Amino acid sequence: MKRVVSLIAGALLLSAQAVGLAQAYPSKPVKVVVPLAAGGTGDTLARTVGDGMARELGQSVVIDNRPGAGGLLGTTSVLNAPADGYTLLAVSPSHVINPALHAGSTYDPLRDFEPITVLAYTHQVIAAHPSVPASNLRELIAYAKNNPGKLNYGSAGTGSATHLNMELLKSMAGVDIVHVPYKGSTQARQGVLAGEVQLAVDGLLPLQPLIKDGRLKVIAVTSSRRPQSNPEIPTVGETLPGYASDTWYGLLARSGTPREAISRLHQAAVKALQSPAVREGLTKLGADPAGNTPAEFRAFLAEEQKLWGKVLKDSGVKPQ
């Protein structure tokens, strides 16, 4: 009888300790691994939201930049960290593209991570050199159909979102436009400015001044909705119904992270995204705040995985 009482007492003690730990989260700084170099849109966005989350959590949110191997380096570092809610991963579409693109990828984007929320959406633009005889997507498609293989477009590299966004368009529109991969979006932007390629897919923010002064023409945004900052720019889907490719940034934790921690992190992120300071910071980046539920984010990741797996297969891109 004494042994039974002792076991019950021990179980109650462990339960009480677990509740105490859950209530105490977070009791130390939270690290967010950004698998990108410092200074870019994804890094700045993570820092902006991280500052807002820190105010909600009552703990510092530290950004740890770990670029390399197309995001695999930073992702692997999170997989090797404890599943305690203190090491998070900031992700973009490459999170679901990399496992299909890289033969040596060691993670599953759904099985190995717990979604927290989509933080924000940014916009990619199809831009054209002024010499291209088209001012909108309908005219561009018509020209490409009449001149197969004569147009080139630059991307940030094979397998990048800028590459796959155009490959999806080519497939849906039935046009032949030649892909020219560059070593980054800056180089692709310089390529279309110099006339090395006639088209490029790039972020709206860095393209805005070039479009404003007439050095480039804007054709359409690849997103499912027009950008809040530039509602005059049409979406690809307005000409090609069913086309939608949102550039998003989200927050994940390792699989196995306590549900209490996921719930607390989600709550902090959503409140941060609703704050005027964070919203103003995201607007300056040309980003639209999000803040969906973990379940909604998981369903979205599954859709993204299916979409980009098909685009990679249809475009003939081989695992590297």
Rank of each mutant, 00 (worst) to 15 (best):
P35I: 01
G316W: 06
G10Y: 07
G214I: 08
K310V: 08
Y243N: 07
S245I: 08
G250T: 01
A269V: 00
A244Y: 05
G85C: 11
A37V: 04
T186Y: 04
S27E: 13
V32R: 00
P93N: 13
N98L: 14
Y249E: 07
V132Q: 02
K318I: 10
A103V: 04
S60D: 06
A142Y: 01
E196F: 12
M53Y: 00
E296Y: 00
L72H: 13
L45G: 01
E232R: 10
L301N: 05
H129G: 09
H123F: 15
P209I: 07
T44L: 08
L45R: 03
P241E: 14
S223I: 03
P82W: 08
Q124H: 11
V118M: 05
V125T: 07
K284Q: 15
L57I: 15
V218H: 13
R259Q: 11
V91H: 01
S185H: 13
T44Y: 01
S77P: 04
A38R: 12
I219R: 11
G85E: 03
A16I: 10
S275F: 00
A69R: 10
E139P: 07
V317H: 13
G42K: 00
A302P: 05
G214C: 09
A11T: 05
G174D: 13
Y243T: 08
A302F: 05
R254Q: 14
Y143S: 06
Q23A: 15
I233M: 09
R225C: 04
A194M: 11
K2A: 14
V61P: 00
L240I: 14
M1N: 12
A90F: 03
P26G: 03
L204N: 11
T76E: 15
G52M: 00
R3P: 02
L57D: 01
V178G: 03
Y143P: 02
R259S: 06
P289E: 03
T257L: 03
N136T: 08
H129F: 09
E296K: 00
A127E: 08
P231F: 07
S6Q: 11
S223D: 15
M53T: 00
D246Q: 06
N80W: 02
G242E: 10
R298L: 09
G104P: 02
Y86W: 08
K217E: 09
S92L: 04
R215N: 10
V236D: 06
Y153E: 02
K318E: 14
W308L: 07
N230H: 15
K306W: 03
L57Q: 06
Y182M: 08
V270D: 05
G250P: 02
A290Y: 01
L110G: 03
G149N: 14
W248F: 14
L101Y: 05
A37T: 04
